[in-house]
Simulated assay, not measured.
Amino acid sequence: MDQGERALHSSSFGAAAVAYAEHRPNYAQAAVQWALEHAPGPRVLDLGAGTGKLTATLVALGAEVIAVEPDPAMLTELRRSLPAARALSGSAEAIPLPDASVDAVVAGNAMHWFDMAVAGPEISRVLTPGGILAGLWNVMDDQVEWVAGLARISGSAAIGPRDTPTSWRAETADMHLPRAGVAARFGSAEQEVFPHGQRRTADSLVSTIATRAGVLVMPEQQQEATLGRIRAFLASRPETARGEFTLPMLTGVLRARRL
């Protein structure tokens, strides 16, 4: 994805901020704990915080959280849902915090939108020595047969290159720190995955998929066709045709320590 396409996709969420807050999953608590286990202190920056899905888990774990989000509509929804959280307008490329002011920087389903050539030095600047940088991604567990079928029928725009465990590992293994030319600022990156799930109905799962960037930027006719195809698939499966079910997921974590 080139820089212009990345900018288009990353700016698509604001129009769907309320739906994003309602339908996107939170993050496995064990994954968040693993991301932060070596942080030298409790101060955590949630970067590209969106509507606060990861922020809420951090607050529940007792972290001293600052949320930073560039999109005004997403930031408004975050402040509405988490009024006690400190939430600032800013971006990964221009973080509105002093040098060495946080012990960890985390990003929930957001790091792939960062221009790490610029954001890498910014993240390094605000981290204390020994601080942790961690990206978290929720992915569908395609080891489950019907989930693999959903991924096939949805197409790559709806279920993208980081949305299943195998592709997530490959896509994130070296896409951030090494390619950004800032690897010298951080130690070796580690990857781990943690079981997760989200209670959904067929309708609410379609609504969740409709908040993905690849769907949001589709022409209306293509979007309707894609979501219609997904609805038909879910209606055809005994696991998803009636009532609530658990969507099998994993939370993947990529973490590195600032040197």
Rank of each mutant, 00 (worst) to 15 (best):
H196Y: 09
E220K: 14
A183Y: 01
T226W: 00
R212N: 12
Q222K: 12
Q223S: 09
G197W: 00
M218T: 09
G197K: 03
A232F: 00
A210N: 11
R199E: 14
Q222M: 13
A189Q: 14
R212Y: 15
R199Q: 14
T201K: 01
Q223D: 05
A213R: 11
R199S: 13
F194V: 05
V193M: 09
P195Q: 10
L234C: 01
L205W: 01
Q222G: 02
L234V: 07
R185F: 10
A225S: 10
V206G: 09
D203G: 09
R212L: 02
L216C: 12
Q223E: 13
T211W: 08
P195H: 06
L227Y: 04
F233Y: 15
R199P: 09
F186H: 01
M218Q: 15
R231G: 10
A210W: 10
G228D: 10
H196M: 04
A232M: 02
G187L: 04
A189M: 07
A235N: 12
E224W: 02
V182Q: 11
A184V: 06
L234N: 02
H196L: 01
V193Y: 00
Q221S: 12
I209V: 14
A232C: 02
Q191G: 08
P219L: 08
Q191V: 05
V217Y: 09
L227H: 09
L216G: 10
A183P: 01
G197H: 03
S204H: 01
Q222P: 02
A184T: 13
A213C: 08
T201F: 07
P219Q: 08
F233A: 03
F194A: 01
P219Y: 04
V193W: 04
F194P: 00
A213M: 06
A183S: 15
R212V: 04
T211Y: 08
R231P: 09
V182A: 08
E224D: 06
R231T: 14
G187R: 03
G228I: 07
A184H: 15
S236D: 14
E220Y: 06
Q221R: 11
G187F: 02
R212C: 07
G197I: 03
A183Q: 15
S204Q: 01
P219D: 12
V217F: 08
V217W: 09
P219M: 07
D203A: 15
S188G: 13
I230F: 10
P195G: 12
L227V: 07
I230H: 03
R185L: 15
F194W: 06
A183G: 13
Q191A: 11
R231V: 11
A184W: 07
V215A: 10
I230S: 04
E190I: 00
S188Y: 02
A225R: 14
M218I: 02
R231Y: 08
Q191L: 13
R200G: 06
V206W: 08
Q221T: 14
R199C: 11
R185A: 15
V215E: 03
T208Q: 14
A232T: 10
F186V: 05
G214C: 13
A210C: 10
V217G: 04
A235D: 15
M218E: 11
S188D: 15
V206D: 07
A210Y: 05
V193I: 09
F194C: 00
L227S: 06
A232Y: 00
